Amino acid sequence: MEQIGNLGFWLGLLLALPIGIVTNLLTPRIQARWAKRSRRVAADREREQREQAALIIRYRRNQAAYWSYLYLSLSRILLRVAVLLGTVIIPFLINDPLWSLSTNVVGVLAFGINVAFLILAVGTFAALLNDVRRTRIVVTAIAVRDEDDDPRTESQPQS
């Protein structure tokens, strides 16, 4: 038993130096890639905000386009909810709801289909949240603007 402990010590000591060297060589590359990605994400976020501002201005000027946008956004959200519910329910209709991995081909195939539906559900949920966020931003901006334009909400002069 003591030999295993000694072997682990010498193996760790032997591997520590190469691992340290590789880590030091890779760190600048990883940092550069991370910084590049951060700049790209910030540029994408800024572009998306400009696009949303342009949409808000367009919809403030054209109420028909705004209602059309609302209709399409809500339809897209409802479709994504339906797909999400389907991807959650369908795996339970396939063979074995507990995903027991049997040795037969049908069990493995059912497991693969269930995993595919799970991946689809996660992607659909992310897209659903993104659609809801975008729609909420536009609707909130339009609603705030409508309240500012509404003569009923203007303050009455104090007498």
Rank of each mutant, 00 (worst) to 15 (best):
N130A: 15
T103P: 01
V132C: 15
V105C: 02
P97F: 00
A141W: 00
S100I: 11
R134I: 00
L128Y: 03
A141Y: 00
R134F: 01
L78A: 13
G112F: 10
A127I: 00
I113S: 15
V122E: 01
I113C: 06
G123M: 11
Y71S: 15
I89L: 11
N104L: 01
I94Q: 04
V122D: 05
A82H: 07
T140S: 12
R134D: 01
E154Q: 04
L70A: 04
R152F: 13
L84K: 05
A82K: 06
L72V: 05
N95Q: 10
L72K: 14
V144H: 09
V115W: 02
L129R: 06
N130G: 06
L72A: 15
L78N: 14
R76I: 02
L85A: 10
A110L: 02
T153P: 00
R136A: 14
L93R: 03
N114F: 00
G86W: 06
I119D: 03
L98P: 00
E154Y: 06
R80E: 13
D150W: 13
F111M: 10
V105L: 08
A110W: 10
L128D: 03
G112Q: 14
V81A: 08
G123W: 15
V139R: 11
L129W: 11
D146W: 07
G112A: 13
N95S: 13
T135C: 04
A127W: 14
I137D: 12
V138M: 05
L74A: 10
G107A: 07
D149H: 11
R76E: 13
T124M: 09
L118E: 08
E154I: 08
F117I: 12
T87A: 13
L74C: 13
N104I: 04
L78F: 11
S73K: 06
L78I: 05
V122C: 10
V88Q: 09
P151K: 01
V81D: 03
E147C: 05
L93K: 02
T140Y: 00
I89H: 03
N104K: 02
L72Q: 12
R76C: 02
D150Y: 12
F92P: 03
S75N: 10
L72D: 15
S75Q: 09
S75Y: 12
G112N: 12
L70R: 07
I137Q: 05
N104E: 09
F125A: 15
V144Y: 00
R136I: 04
L72T: 11
W99S: 15
V88F: 14
L120C: 14
I77C: 08
